[in-house]
Design a protein around this nucleic acid. Structure first.
Lengths: 142, 142
DNA sequence: CTGTATCCTTAGGGATACTG
DNA sequence: CAGTATCCCTAAGGATACAG
């Protein structure tokens, strides 16, 4: 794990240095909302991530303690990825991003029922999402 | 304003395409928490942004409707920047980022009183921060 | 002071071939 | 299937000079 000098000790900057690229948060999205677990699952996401980038991001997320991996007991040759508690703590950020984008951009693929539940009881929904990680119970998409 | 093809219509991806670089959110941070208004203010931020990058980001944020600008009445030669309502709606995202980073990384420069108030009444604090934009009333830093 | 323009370097990332 | 390794290219970004 490479030591990185942060540009500053600002908390916003910290998150940007580690998560602020065009792919990392999409991998986390797939873990949280899409129930993805295997390399190939992430590879098949809508945006089309290259295998080398995906490999790099998964490793970085593991090094950061956001993702953990293990050999799947059942399918011996498959590595299974899942979010650690540190990763689950990112859910509120994802949720606020979804709310902002939905509000300010038309035509995005957002489940209206999901948004409704969020506006009715945001912190309850966040807990429910965190509890559901690994399943596809809550998809933000339609 | 350039038309950009989004890689997907996912709301997370939308925010990433427009705000997902290493500088944009820091400019917004300076507007929200540091009361910065003028080009030179942003230029002097801790992380040291180059003038061409800063110029580009301010223009992009204006084109997105997140920032507006006007010639300062008093100092005729100075352009004054401020957050639009669309920009103020980013505050919850910034707040969740600050919470996450503070929780998972030691040694960051975060005002403990600020964090305390947040944990006591998050939505109240967010409203207070939004109402205070343009001042330095709430700095997340110490 | 508020930017713009230019030059140059590097990191990020696409395509794809390949290995265990 | 789960990655790793290359090759190559482009966009992002630093430094700095300059213009209104």
């Amino acid at each position: 794990m490479k030591k990185v000098d942060l540009r500053s000790d600002c908390p916003i900057n910290y998150a940007l240095e580690y998560l602020g690229d065009k792919w990392t948060l999409l991998v986390i999205r797939d873990l949280v909302f899409e129930g993805k677990k295997f390399f190939k699952d992430f590879q098949n996401s809508q945006e089309g991530i290259a295998t080398n980038i995906l490999s790099d991001r998964l490793k970085r997320l593991e090094a950061l303690g956001i993702v953990s991996s293990a050999i799947d007991k059942k399918q011996r040759r498959q590595k299974i990825y899942r979010l650690s508690p540190k990763g689950a703590d990112l859910v509120p950020i994802l949720v606020e991003i979804i709310i902002w984008s939905s509000k300010h951009k038309d035509g995005l693929n957002v489940n209206p029922v999901f948004l409704q539940k969020l506006s009715a009881d945001k912190s309850g929904m966040i807990k429910a999402i965190q509890a559901s990680i690994g399943s596809t119970q809550f998809s933000a998409h339609q």
